[in-house]
Design a protein around this nucleic acid. Structure first.
Lengths: 255, 255
DNA sequence: AAAGAAGAAGTGGTCAGACCATTGACACCG
DNA sequence: CGGTGTCAATGGTCTGACCACTTCTTCTTT
């Protein structure tokens, strides 16, 4: 058994000590005996219970932390220990970011999936967004409107705008996946922001697109919001990838 | 710094020993010095290099394994060591499955996102699928056609059908996210398969839907394939969640 | 000189034990 | 009753020993 089988099926016993722990946690979650907010047994206790070393327990806990399933704190009482937690968004973002960086997902692939998910998210946002949520996305637009804004800060606010719209969808998985995918493209997009020559033209287009999307979502026009966000993502990526002054495609990762 | 910051930004130094290692690997990947197929330094060497214990290195490696970034093998030479790998799909699946099991994503949320992604995947499959790929999805349909098939086996073949169509999309991220989300619903769907009374009616509808989707993809009718897969997912979920004999909704996780 | 066997070296995997910092619970004192 | 100090329990970290596996090197035999 190798590292591909970190989550073994129950038909086959775990091969490594830390996988014994993972299998135990998995079974507890599936059976409903461990839910969000519950604490795992202490590391030493779990090691005794499962007849593995404490190091094995710790390695399993790191795996679960990477998956956003648990968090750990030192100390006695309720503050200490390892708690089942609901942190899928960060875990998704970290995972996707690394694989984007490793060129395991071609940028064009990411853009396609991003279009599908952002269409879903703005449609749901147009139907579900609260004024408070729209305030968050509007604030990001206001930040981006600063004529002296640095490209990095613009990128951060641009990301925040999209994440805010995803958050307004009222659908946890849509929110997390949409945000994670936008975040995973933060560095590639910033890299392009830094290399394009026609930045002044591009940034105006981006601003106008964002405002149009915000307006469509605000008035509840789901179809228009979908159309606008798709056009925005595609045209922005196109502009950032093809810089006339550079005479060619900046390109993305190619497989 | 707590476990939420497993992937710290470089503006703040890592707080825990294993995060020093993660930050180092992150930097290596981002700079391009570590790419798919490359080996990390040996655990003992990396511990010396980064002035942490070997246990810290191992914990970081477990984190990276959970994210599908590395795999490890014992032994000298090229066979041994920790290698950068491209395994996003399994990592995504494991992550989503745990969070679905923890009820962190309401089933209805998952269905909505699944609809968006499967629409994308079948559209791309209609445009890009090879005969070999369509053969794989057809084989899953053939398995499901067995009149004596057990519900678990049907569920497995049903999953394989959707995964095969996603694989035919020719878009790595679409494939992985679509497959991961369908897989993450494998147990909830199987649970419903086991509890519905009108199984014979439902399974016929499922079979007919699958065949219609396969036919549309095969003849390259992207729009029809999209429409069919959305209708299929929604009506199947509705049928599986509302069982007249049970007199009410089986429901899903509620937040 | 070439081939095969044995040993060495290096790899991740595992464990035990010691120690550290943090945190809450409990006991004691005013 | 409130404040302080101590203790126990928690995760965090490190060290060192040993294991199984794999390849490489050295030695022996043909």
């Amino acid at each position: 058994m190798d590292a591909d089988s970190l989550q073994p099926s129950f038909a086959e016993p775990p091969g490594r000590a830390f996988e014994v722990v993972l299998a135990w946690v998995d079974a507890q979650i599936l059976s409903g005996d461990l839910a969000v907010g519950d604490q795992l047994p202490a590391e030493r206790e779990l090691a005794r219970l499962l007849n593995v070393s404490r190091a094995a327990v710790r390695e399993a806990v790191r795996t679960l932390q990477a998956q956003g399933v648990v968090r750990s704190s030192v100390g006695a009482g309720a503050a200490g220990g390892t708690t089942i937690n609901a942190l899928p968004s960060d875990a998704l973002t970290r995972l996707l970011r690394l694989h984007v960086a490793l060129a395991n997902f071609p940028h064009e692939d990411v853009i396609e999936v991003r279009v599908a998910l952002e269409r879903l998210s703005v449609r749901l946002a147009a139907q579900n967004a609260t004024p408070e949520q729209l305030d968050v996305s509007q604030k990001a637009i206001d930040v981006m409107a600063d004529p002296d804004i640095e490209r990095e800060a613009f990128n951060d606010a641009d990301t925040a705008f999209h994440v805010a719209l995803a958050a307004a969808a009222g659908n946890r998985l849509a929110m997390d996946t949409t945000a994670a995918i936008r975040e995973s493209m933060r560095l590639p997009i910033l890299d392009r922001f830094r290399h394009v020559h026609a930045w002044d033209d591009i940034v105006e287009d981006l601003r106008r697109d964002h405002e149009a999307i915000q307006a469509a979502v605000t008035r509840g026009d789901a179809e228009e919001a979908e159309r606008l966000v798709e056009t925005h993502i595609r045209s922005a990526w196109h502009a950032l990838s093809y810089d006339v002054s550079a005479g060619g495609w900046l390109g993305g990762s190619e497989r």
